[in-house]
C-alpha cells in the first residue's frame, strides 16, 4: 500500500513537472522545474534499490547537463524570449500524434511479458551494494556494448572540439 502511494506520488508529480517544463514562458523557470523533475526521477530509481543510478542521475543530469543548459539560456535575451509564443503553430498535429502513440503504448501493455529474473535478486544487490553489482555486470557480461557506447561518446567529444575550433591546420 505504502509502495503504491509512493509510486503514485512520483508518477503524478513527474507528469505535472514535465508539463510545467514545456509550458513556462521563461526558459530559466523551465530549467528549474526540470531540476525538480530530475530529483523526482532519481527518487524513483532509489525506490527501485538503484542507488548508484539515482546518484548518477543527479550528478550527470542535474549537476552537469542542466547546468550547461542554464549557462546557454542565461545568454538569451529573456525579455524578448518571454514575448515569443512557446509552441510552434502546428502543435495540435503533434499533440494528436502524441495521444495516438500513447494509446498504442497503453494497448501494447496487455501483451507485456516480464523477462525471466536474472541472478541479481534484491537481497543479493542489498548484500553486495548496488554499485558493485552494476560494475560487475557492466564490465563482464556487457563489456562490449559498454565500450561501444563509450566510443560513440568519445566521437561526439572529438566532434564538438573540431566544430568549436575554427582554425584547423589543413
Amino acid at each position: 500500500m505504502l509502495q503504491q502511494l509512493f509510486f503514485a506520488y512520483f508518477a503524478v508529480t513527474i507528469i505535472v513537472f514535465s508539463i510545467l517544463v514545456i509550458t513556462r514562458r521563461n526558459p530559466v523557470h523551465s530549467v528549474l522545474w526540470m531540476l525538480l523533475l530530475f530529483f523526482h526521477i532519481a527518487s524513483l530509481y532509489l525506490f527501485l534499490n538503484a542507488e548508484f543510478i539515482a546518484a548518477i542521475q543527479i550528478i550527470v543530469y542535474a549537476g552537469a547537463i542542466l547546468v550547461l543548459y542554464l549557462f546557454a539560456i542565461l545568454f538569451l535575451n529573456i525579455k524578448e524570449e518571454v514575448k515569443v509564443n512557446r509552441f510552434v503553430g502546428a502543435w495540435p498535429t503533434g499533440f494528436t500524434f502524441g495521444i495516438a502513440l500513447f494509446i498504442v503504448f497503453i494497448l501494447s501493455l496487455r501483451s507485456f511479458i516480464a523477462a525471466p529474473p536474472g541472478n541479481y535478486s534484491i537481497e543479493l544487490i542489498k548484500a553486495e551494494t548496488h554499485t558493485k553489482a552494476l560494475a560487475k555486470v557492466l564490465y563482464t557480461d556487457f563489456l562490449f556494448p559498454f565500450e561501444v557506447a563509450s566510443v560513440i561518446l568519445l566521437v561526439a567529444i572529438v566532434g564538438t572540439i573540431v566544430l568549436a575550433k575554427r582554425r584547423l591546420k589543413s
Binding site: E51, F52, A54, A55, I58, I59, A62, G63, H130, T131
Partner: peptide
Amino acid sequence: IGLLFIFAMSS
C-alpha cells in the same frame, strides 16, 4: 553512496 551523494549536493 555517501561520496556520490556529497558530489550530487555540491553540484
